[in-house]
Write a protein that binds this DNA or RNA. Structure first.
Lengths: 112, 112
DNA sequence: AATCGTACTACGACAGTCGTACTATGTCTG
DNA sequence: CAGACATAGTACGACTGTCGTAGTACGATT
């Protein structure tokens, strides 16, 4: 079984999170489940990686947090949601371009 | 100008080096030039990254070093050459498989 | 009563990469 | 003939994204 190494993915966890947030604001647990689903169970982001990505990206201005009720009927329990900013959208676009280049380059060193 | 970030490439410098060494033994400066050429000048490996990769990979048994004359006429000047080992070839194959998987997964989070 | 799912936070370790700097020799150029 | 440039490295510490471990809290399920 081949596993995705943390070295490769490094820097692209942010991209995955932003991809989810492009559609609508979301929160940790939900984002984690979506990444698992979208990747066909091939990639599970670690909790610590996820939450430290939130902190970093909010500091960098790529996302904004706000709290909202877990239950729409509002029983007091809150969750921290994140929404992507314009800077985040721009950063995401750059990462997509970078990915195209990187993919192209690394591919030249891969034999199958 | 989009640049390849060190985060993405992380872990794949080793793969590039091994790819070069699959053909024949080589040494630092030459490998560095080949990586630049093969990547169409799109990627330049840093000297420190290159040489620390040698140290690490030799420790892991993926490559072996030996010294040889710079000049075939042997004027005394020596260079450190590296040759790939069987373990190195196996590691390279694994990285290629890993790359296929990683590429597939990340691609799902990229829009263009 | 205990387990599981949800929803986090804290903290320190790890490791590949990078920046900076330094050494040394040979060759090319003005 | 001096200075720049190419070759061929070594040394060392900083950076940072990721990971391992651990702990908290609450509701629902069994």
């Amino acid at each position: 079984m081949v596993e995705i190494s943390s070295d490769v993915i490094r820097g692209y966890n942010d991209t995955m999170i932003l991809f989810i947030l492009l559609r609508e604001p979301s929160y940790g647990y939900e984002i984690s489940k979506q990444i698992r689903t979208i990747s066909d169970e091939k990639y599970l982001i670690k909790e610590t990686t996820l939450y430290s990505a939130f902190t970093r990206m909010e500091k960098n201005g790529y996302i904004e947090s706000f709290t909202a009720d877990q239950d729409p009927n509002g029983n007091g329990k809150k969750r921290t949601y994140y929404r992507i900013t314009d800077a985040g959208r721009e950063y995401y676009r750059e990462k997509c371009e970078e990915w195209a280049l990187t993919q192209d380059v690394i591919q030249r060193f891969i034999s199958r």
